[in-house]
Simulated assay, not measured.
Amino acid sequence: MYRIVHRRDALVATIMQAIPLNIQFRRVLVGDRWEAWLHLVRRLMEVQLHHQPDQLCWKLTRSEQFTVKSMYIDVINSSV
């Protein structure tokens, strides 16, 4: 999607504020691309954006803080 959108610098919040969505693609979305777009829009509709600094949450630890050990364990387990 990113490769075929007209304004790559547009913010998700800006696009999602308008009805219909304020986005234009350089090509027509058909087939799998259309389905992927609809899936993405459905998922984004559930997201509530707030004017707060972004925060990183590392889901591989209970504390949600990054550790090399948690990353290593995940890489080892996913390659098996």
Rank of each mutant, 00 (worst) to 15 (best):
L56K: 10
R62M: 11
D9P: 00
V80Y: 09
L49M: 04
W37R: 11
Q55W: 06
V28Q: 09
R3E: 13
V12H: 01
M1I: 11
I73G: 05
A13V: 14
F66T: 01
V75H: 13
Y2C: 14
Q52R: 15
T67M: 05
S63K: 05
E64H: 06
L56D: 07
V41A: 06
G31T: 12
H6M: 06
I4N: 08
T61N: 07
S79A: 13
Q65T: 12
Q55F: 08
R3F: 13
A10V: 04
A18F: 04
Q48L: 05
A18V: 05
Y2L: 15
I15M: 11
S63I: 01
V47M: 00
A10I: 04
R27D: 12
V47S: 01
V80D: 07
L38N: 15
H6N: 07
I4C: 10
T67S: 09
S70V: 04
M45I: 03
F25R: 02
R8N: 03
Y72A: 10
H6R: 10
H6W: 06
R27K: 13
I4E: 07
D32F: 14
V30M: 14
V30P: 10
R3A: 14
Y72H: 13
A10N: 05
R43A: 03
V47L: 02
V30Y: 14
I73K: 10
D9S: 10
V68R: 08
M45N: 03
I4R: 06
L11M: 03
C57Q: 11
L40H: 07
M45H: 02
S63C: 05
A10M: 04
Q52G: 10
V41M: 05
M45E: 05
W37K: 12
F66H: 02
V80S: 07
N22G: 14
S78L: 14
W37A: 12
D54F: 09
A18R: 07
V28L: 09
F25H: 04
I73V: 11
M1A: 11
V5G: 05
R3C: 12
A10T: 03
R8F: 01
D74S: 13
L40A: 13
I15W: 06
R62Q: 12
S78V: 11
I76T: 08
I15L: 07
K69V: 06
A36W: 14
W58L: 01
P20V: 07
H39R: 15
E35I: 15
V28I: 07
E64S: 03
V80W: 07
Q65S: 10
I76C: 09
E64L: 02
L29Y: 12
Y72N: 10
E46C: 01
Q17N: 06
Q65P: 08
L49Q: 00
T61Y: 04
P20M: 09
H39S: 15
Q17K: 09
M1K: 08
A36F: 13
L11D: 02
M71D: 06
W58P: 04
E46H: 00
R33Y: 15
L11P: 00
I76Y: 09
V30T: 15
R3I: 11
S70T: 02
